[in-house]
């Protein structure tokens, strides 16, 4: 029975997202929204690791996303296109299909390294310290990019459209959706594995009682830094995807407002619920699009809706439960390794 689990689910979503886009059944706008949903899922799921499972409070996810966005788009634009920033292309366009995923990866690594810089001093003490540091990181990132004139400074950076086009010219395929889809699956896969392993679940123990964790041999400092880097690295990859989706980025795109949206999606879904994160990323992205006709009032309606939701459901959509807890019958197909092991022992 097990083989009908995850692969089937992934296959079905693949069919519904990518094949119609490929065949041209989806308009560009719908493709854009699908990509955006995917990016938001990555961001939400990854931030949930810190703010949900670990119970810390990071408000700087957009900055890490921005590091990834700038790194990967600088790379692709520099290597593959003729542009006003760096001049002629260095590599032939045909390599874009290869360079693009590599640049995403490098963007993620850059974001992870940047987060290490933040994490080392931040996790010395508990409490709201990380919130403060990451808040400052938002300002530092924006201010730093604004001061680098070579990449456009506050005016922003562009040229990623050409890269995407180059890929499409080579092989007509919805590359962005494809890569977004892969990264979404990858993010959920590794985070789910992590939080369901003894090593990863220890971050929940840290949230619950840090001193007890430390005394029960958990290397809390190392674990917190690792989880933070993992989360920020994924945000960096999402940033790379985002930059190539919107094709024009400026420092304000990765400022506090963006961080706030990611936070909202995490808490809307529920702290420590992966399926909640996925659901809330989908709902929130679509909601923002549906409210688009409201123009400025959209930005009034969204927080208002969320405040009302918080008042009626103060633990988010899913609380800390997963979809599996809501539909216990599915457990047969999707339960985690640890649950299976435990059940096997209880039965024997």
């Amino acid at each position: 029975m097990k083989r009908f689990g995850m692969p089937t689910l992934i296959g079905i979503s693949f069919l519904f997202c990518i094949v119609p886009s490929w065949l041209g059944w989806f308009s560009n706008y719908i493709q854009f929204i699908i990509t955006l949903i995917g990016i938001n899922i990555i961001l939400t799921v990854s931030l949930n690791l810190i703010n949900g499972y670990m119970g810390e409070f990071s408000v700087g996810h957009a900055a890490f996303m921005g590091v990834g966005a700038y790194t990967s788009s600088l790379l692709t634009v520099y290597l593959l296109t003729e542009n006003p920033f760096f001049g002629k292309a260095i590599l032939p366009e045909e390599l874009s299909i290869l360079i693009f995923p590599i640049s995403l990866l490098i963007g993620g690594v850059a974001a992870a390294l940047f987060s290490l810089l933040i994490a080392i001093p931040s996790f010395r003490t508990r409490g709201d310290y990380l919130a403060i540091v990451t808040l400052a990181v938002n300002f530092i990132f924006k201010s730093a990019i604004e001061n680098i004139d070579a990449i456009g400074g506050p005016r922003g950076f562009m040229g990623m459209g050409k890269v995407v086009k180059a890929m499409d010219n080579l092989v007509s395929f919805p590359w962005l959706i494809f890569w977004t889809f892969l990264v979404v699956v990858f993010s959920i896969f590794i985070i789910r594995n992590f939080v369901n392993s003894t090593m990863g679940k220890s971050i929940v123990a840290i949230r619950d009682d840090e001193i007890a964790s430390e005394l029960m041999t958990v290397n809390t400092r190392w674990l917190k830094i690792v989880a933070f880097m993992l989360s920020c690295g994924l945000a960096g990859v999402a940033g790379g995807l985002h930059a190539h989706t919107v094709t024009f980025i400026n420092p304000s795109s990765y400022f506090i407002l963006q961080s706030t949206y990611i936070l909202v999606m995490v808490y809307l879904g529920g702290m420590g619920s992966l399926s909640g994160s996925v659901i809330s990323a989908i709902v929130f992205t679509i909601l923002l699009e549906l409210l688009r006709p409201l123009d400025v009032w959209r930005w009034v309606a969204t927080p208002l809706l969320l405040i009302i939701l918080m008042l009626f459901r103060p633990t988010g959509i899913m609380g800390s439960r997963e979809l599996l807890d809501v539909f216990p019958k599915l457990k047969k197909y999707f339960s985690s390794l640890q649950e299976r092991l435990t059940n096997a022992f209880i039965k024997s």
């Binding site: 936070l263 909202v264 808490y267 702290m271 208002l304 969320l306 918080m310 103060p314």
Partner: peptide, 17 residues
């Protein structure tokens, strides 16, 4: 009895509002 961080998010929302 909502988690403390939900209050913080609500505060953020009110700021945006």
């Amino acid at each position: 009895g909502a988690h403390r961080l939900y209050l913080v998010i609500t505060a953020l929302m009110f700021g945006l509002l």
